[in-house]
Amino acid sequence: MPTKRQLPTARLRRLAREMRRLRSEAGLTREEIAASTAINQATLYRLEYAKGRPQKRTLLTLLKEYGVEEAERDAILALSSQADEQGWLRPYHADLPDELVGYISFESEARSVRNYESLFIPGLLQTEDYARATVSRGVGPGVTAKQVDQRVQARLERQVVFTKDTPLELWAIVDEAALRRVVGGPAVMTEQLRHLLKVAVEPHVMLQVIPFSSGAHPGMPGSFVLMDFSDPEDPELVYIDSMAGDLFLEAEEDVRRYDQIFDHLRALAASPDDSLNLIASAVCENT
């Protein structure tokens, strides 16, 4: 059986960035470190780009080589010990796709999420019946009922981010098409829309709709998520889910581009009050 690859976590990404910084500040190349420590360059690359968590022995060797003092060394060792933690994950979710596990790990640690959806209600705002209808149709042939149940349960458990001491801040923008497409039948869709009317007035949720009357807009090519983290050392992260696969982007130019697209969509969308009116009108059409 193939070894399950290291899943990304915000802490692992932070540790990798710290290791790159320390080596850079020490003025050393990976080739030089490999020559002086016998730690091969492939291992160094994996550690510096969040491909795996270092063994404690390897980490101690590197920190000594970089001249890291005791207080900073202890902080990095503590970060490394927590780097694999997937606090949200339940044992019976072990079969979830790696990309989904990685996404939820980041989402669970995010301070705020900006989510644009062109065809679906955002996952954090879905009801169970709506989620089941989208998962059943959206995961492809050959998926068992048990796997559908696991993915639906995972989607619902994601919503615990709203019940934390400091709830996740969600700014969701949806195209009107997501309101008008009857997913799961009229009763399921009506329940979903009424749920949106309820959660949209929560202080940690901002919901806007881009009406059909707005015409073409920059969000039409597809959905995306922007995540922001409480720790200033954790840069924003972009997540894109497409037919070609899931993609995480953290390069500054990519984040800036999606920041600008989201700002454009926010300005184009109806105001929060007018968006609630659009949702209410969609409820009336389904009843």
Rank of each mutant, 00 (worst) to 15 (best):
D273F: 02
G142N: 06
G52M: 05
D84P: 02
A75I: 06
S136D: 11
A270L: 09
R46A: 14
L156M: 14
S108F: 07
R90A: 12
A244S: 10
H195P: 02
E250F: 00
R155Q: 12
A282S: 02
R194M: 13
E65D: 05
D165K: 11
K198L: 09
T43W: 09
T29N: 06
D74T: 10
L179Q: 05
L276H: 03
R180F: 01
R46H: 07
Q192P: 07
I261T: 14
R132C: 05
E25H: 10
A267S: 05
G142C: 00
L79A: 01
K64H: 08
D228I: 06
S80R: 15
P186D: 00
E233Y: 03
A83Y: 08
R180G: 02
V113A: 14
S136P: 05
L168P: 12
R30K: 14
D263A: 15
V182I: 15
E169I: 04
Y45I: 09
P97K: 00
Q55F: 08
A154F: 11
E176A: 03
L96H: 12
L156F: 04
S80G: 10
L79Q: 02
C284F: 04
E69S: 13
K146S: 10
L15D: 03
V283I: 11
T134K: 11
L28W: 05
Q260H: 15
L197A: 00
Q147N: 10
E285P: 01
L47F: 15
A178F: 04
D274R: 15
R13I: 07
L249M: 09
N277R: 13
A200M: 03
T134W: 06
D84N: 10
E109H: 09
L77D: 01
Q153H: 15
T144G: 10
E252M: 11
P8C: 03
A26I: 11
R266W: 08
S81V: 03
T287M: 11
Y92Q: 11
